[in-house]
Simulated scan of single mutants.
Amino acid sequence: MSEPYAQPSTIQALKERIAELENQLVEAQQDVETRRNQIAAEAVRNLRSHGVILVYVGEEDFSQVCAEASSTLPLLHMLKDDVRLLRNAPVSPAAKEALFDAAQHLLHRWQ
């Protein structure tokens, strides 16, 4: 009576095919994430044409925030050139303080 087990060469071929498919899956997931980030960045840029802007109101150095978040928030890295810094706004210090206070109110309003 013959054994119902697969030949070693068949098993090896299946293992190689599984590894190949797993690699393809990882690549596809990375492509999806990259494209998702690109779409979000394009959406933010389109919003800017309608008067919607991203303004960084944090007290920390924005470059440092981006560097620290780049591994966990790749979208932030893609959008960093679209973010305006409140501290660089061409307004008086009193106006910056008023904008900062208003932004802080908005940030904490829904918590």
Rank of each mutant, 00 (worst) to 15 (best):
A95N: 04
S92A: 06
R48G: 07
P4C: 07
Y5E: 15
H77Q: 13
L86K: 07
P4I: 11
L86T: 01
Q12V: 14
H105L: 13
Q30F: 14
R17N: 12
R48A: 15
I18Y: 07
A28S: 00
E3A: 07
K15M: 01
S92W: 10
P8Y: 04
H108Q: 15
A43K: 13
K15P: 11
Q104A: 10
H105D: 03
S70Y: 05
P90T: 10
H77F: 01
D81C: 11
A67V: 11
V91I: 06
M1A: 06
A6V: 03
P90C: 03
G51M: 00
Q29R: 14
I11P: 05
V52N: 05
E22L: 07
N46Q: 14
Q29K: 01
A98I: 10
S9L: 11
K15A: 08
C66F: 04
E22S: 09
P93W: 03
I11G: 07
E59R: 09
N88W: 09
F62D: 00
S49D: 01
L85T: 10
V91G: 01
E42S: 10
Q38Y: 09
L73K: 02
Y56K: 03
V55G: 07
V91W: 00
R84E: 15
E42R: 05
L86H: 02
R17H: 06
V44R: 12
I53P: 12
K15F: 01
F62R: 05
S9C: 10
Q7M: 12
A94S: 01
A98P: 00
W110G: 07
G51R: 04
A69L: 04
M78Q: 13
Y5V: 14
R17S: 05
C66Q: 04
A19W: 05
L75N: 07
D82L: 09
K80Q: 14
R48Q: 11
Q64S: 08
L47G: 10
M1F: 13
V65Q: 11
S49T: 07
V26D: 15
V83N: 04
E3K: 10
C66K: 06
A19H: 08
A43M: 08
F100K: 12
T34G: 12
A95G: 04
V83D: 08
A103C: 03
H108L: 15
L85C: 09
D81M: 11
V57L: 14
T72D: 04
L99Y: 09
P8F: 01
A13D: 06
I11T: 05
P8V: 03
V26F: 15
P93N: 06
K96Y: 04
R48C: 06
P74C: 07
T34L: 14
P90K: 11
L106Y: 11
E60H: 11
Y5A: 14
